[in-house]
């Protein structure tokens, strides 16, 4: 065996240990609620908590809304840039990458100062307005991932030809977008959507500072007050993240099967 391969195995083994231990530790800890024996008590306690249900469904709802808003804002823009305004491309790309540079906490601080009750647009004054702000913030957080996914999807189809073909058949812009472009980049949108879901579901800073009853702040409060339930929740969150990534893989693989090999 070549020495380089031994090093490769060693690197992999150390990595595996580092990543496996916290997961094993969490699972083990989450089962320790009842003294002396392993049990699912912590899970039972968490799942029967009405607060858990309320915050979790709030976050799921916000995640789904974020995906919808994200697609509505990003898909037509990415399409339009590819079709008509290629010169805007660097600018749009720069803007979509900004959320990776501007820390979320700075962003939400800006929201709070800019849209407070005494400002020109008092969004934080009402629950609905604050939810809207939270939704916008989540969409900004998802911007880099969503834009990249959609743009990659658009690259694999010939946008200009498809559009011209649809126009020559008499289709209007909304028809083109909804019936031609979106279905063709569905897989890309879906993989962006699952990633967005994974990001939003456990998000903490925005929800905490905007004071919304989301899953992330609930997790934090629970973590400060309980011992075993947080571990159970961490396991559940990890499972959700894993499911999202698994679904991304699944839809990507499905697409490969339906596509004509190039």
């Amino acid at each position: 065996m070549k020495p380089s391969r031994i090093w490769a195995w060693l690197a992999l083994a150390v990595g595996a240990l580092y990543f496996a231990l916290p997961l094993i530790g969490t699972i083990e800890f989450s089962l320790r609620m009842r003294r002396g024996v392993y049990s699912f008590d912590a899970y039972r306690a968490v799942l029967s908590d009405p607060q858990f249900r309320a915050t979790f469904s709030f976050s799921v709802f916000m995640a789904l809304m974020t995906i919808v808003l994200g697609v509505l804002v990003i898909a037509p823009t990415a399409y339009w840039v590819r079709l008509k305004l290629p010169r805007w491309r660097p600018i749009v790309e720069f803007i979509t990458l900004l959320p990776l540079v501007v820390p979320p906490i700075v962003l939400v601080f800006g929201y709070i100062r800019l849209y407070n009750t005494s400002s020109w647009l008092p969004l934080t004054g009402t629950a609905g307005g604050t939810n809207l702000l939270l939704l916008a913030g989540y969409t900004v957080l998802a911007l880099p991932y969503m834009y990249r996914a959609v743009d990659t999807g658009l690259r694999t189809i010939d946008v200009a030809t498809l559009t011209e073909a649809a126009q020559s058949l008499g289709a209007g812009w909304i028809t083109i977008m909804a019936r031609i472009i979106l279905p063709n980049i569905m897989v890309a949108i879906l993989s962006g959507a699952f990633l967005t879901f994974a990001i939003v579901i456990g998000e903490f800073v925005l929800a905490a500072l905007l004071n919304r009853p989301a899953f992330g702040p609930y997790l934090q409060v629970l973590g400060a007050n309980r011992a075993y339930e947080p571990a159970a929740l961490a396991v559940i969150t990890f499972a959700i993240t894993w499911a999202c990534m698994g679904l991304i893989q699944l839809v990507t693989r499905l697409q490969k099967h339906t596509q004509v090999p190039r």
Binding site: P22, T26, G202, L219, G223, A234, T237
Partner: peptide
């Protein structure tokens, strides 16, 4: 937050 829990548990 969940990551923090995981490391606390470990």
């Amino acid at each position: 937050v969940p990551l923090a829990f995981a490391f606390l548990a470990t």
